[in-house]
Design a protein around this nucleic acid. Structure first.
Lengths: 196, 196
DNA sequence: GATAAAAACAAACAGAGTGTATGCAATAAA
DNA sequence: TTTATTGCATACACTCTGTTTGTTTTTATC
């Protein structure tokens, strides 16, 4: 019967190990912060070795980037799913509700809004985010204010997006009432989208 | 004549060395980020030794905290000076202008808005900030909206403050037009302060 | 199906950084 | 002046990161 050595295909082995390393890294990064999260502990949690880690990732920062990319992808997908399920006029409202819901996942706000920008820098975070909320916000604002300059609209989108981010972070960090922040942000969004 | 050994009082020696260490640390933290800023390089820039560093600060994080506290104090003072110089109705407008001006100091936005929260945490940053802008904002919003709940006003203050922070950071990081962001924020502030 | 090649992982190594302990010099106190 | 204290320097132990070398498992080739 020869049931020793289960013979796992490389592509599957690779994906599984990578996933285990990312999951373990996520947990340790959230618990200790980037600087205090050591690769020895990460691989202990992942039940792997540092050899495996450095085989899959160039360095500690690349591992962290993979964690950030995974979180960002989850957020983007949650927003797109929610936005796509309603008519266009409701898309931004549905999207912002979905944003708050998905950002409530434990550790996510810390990774995406605090550690990410600090470790990877704003430019890299922008590249990773790419389709996250801000883009749809920009389009909505342009439609509502065709008379205002591009720079003005862009600035407004950036600043509004930061307000959303901060609200999500505040809820995650202090356990503040999510409903209150969501109401405040919905109000700000509607004000910004009102033409005139 | 005996002009050897200039005999410096301890209190002065201490203050000078501390100041040199903080200034050098500020420069290296800004240039490399917290994780990649090494104490050997910091003391090299300060023309001191690691012995002096660890005599004045408990650890690397405490040194960083001292840098953050110095920056925060500068910002607070700039805002208070500007606010105090005008009549009360203009205080918030003057304060926000002063905020943008003082946050344009090289490296300051990075330290206070990116690295600070990541390294020290939001709670510690709140403690350090204490009188920074947000408090005056809160008071102004309460006066403008006496009918709204405390939680709502607080959430609005937090979120508006985050918008200011992000605007300052964007200007610092991308060299975006400060005037555009300042105009957008002034508009948001006025909208928020309009009763009704 | 045996053998060579490549990929996945493990283990050992080198270098650097952090924090501590100890020692010396300068100022302050007695 | 002597002693104590404070400020700083040097040396050490430890841990972490990234690299190199070695071993196992899978894949390709004959």
């Amino acid at each position: 019967m020869q049931e020793k050595s289960t013979r796992t295909p490389n592509v599957e082995r690779r994906a599984q190990m990578r996933a285990r390393l990312i999951a373990a890294a996520r947990a340790v990064f959230v618990e200790k912060g980037y600087a205090d999260a050591g690769t020895p502990e990460i691989v202990r949690v992942a039940e792997a070795t540092r050899g495996a880690l450095y085989h899959h990732f160039e360095d500690k920062q690349a591992l962290f980037r993979a964690v950030v990319e995974a979180e960002a992808a989850d957020v983007t997908q949650a927003i797109e799913t929610a936005s796509g399920a309603v008519e266009a006029s409701q898309a931004l409202a549905a999207g912002s509700h979905a944003f708050f819901a998905t950002m409530a996942v434990a550790g996510r706000a810390q990774i995406l809004l605090v550690d990410g920008p600090a470790v990877l820098g704003a430019a890299e975070m922008d590249r990773i985010d790419a389709g996250g909320g801000r883009q749809s916000l920009l389009v909505g604002l342009q439609a509502a204010h065709p008379e205002r300059s591009g720079a003005e609209i862009k600035a407004l989108a950036i600043v509004l997006s930061a307000a959303f981010d901060r609200a999500a972070l505040e809820v995650a960090q202090t356990g503040a009432q999510a409903a209150v922040f969501e109401a405040v942000l919905t109000g700000m969004l509607n004000t910004a989208l009102t033409p005139g």
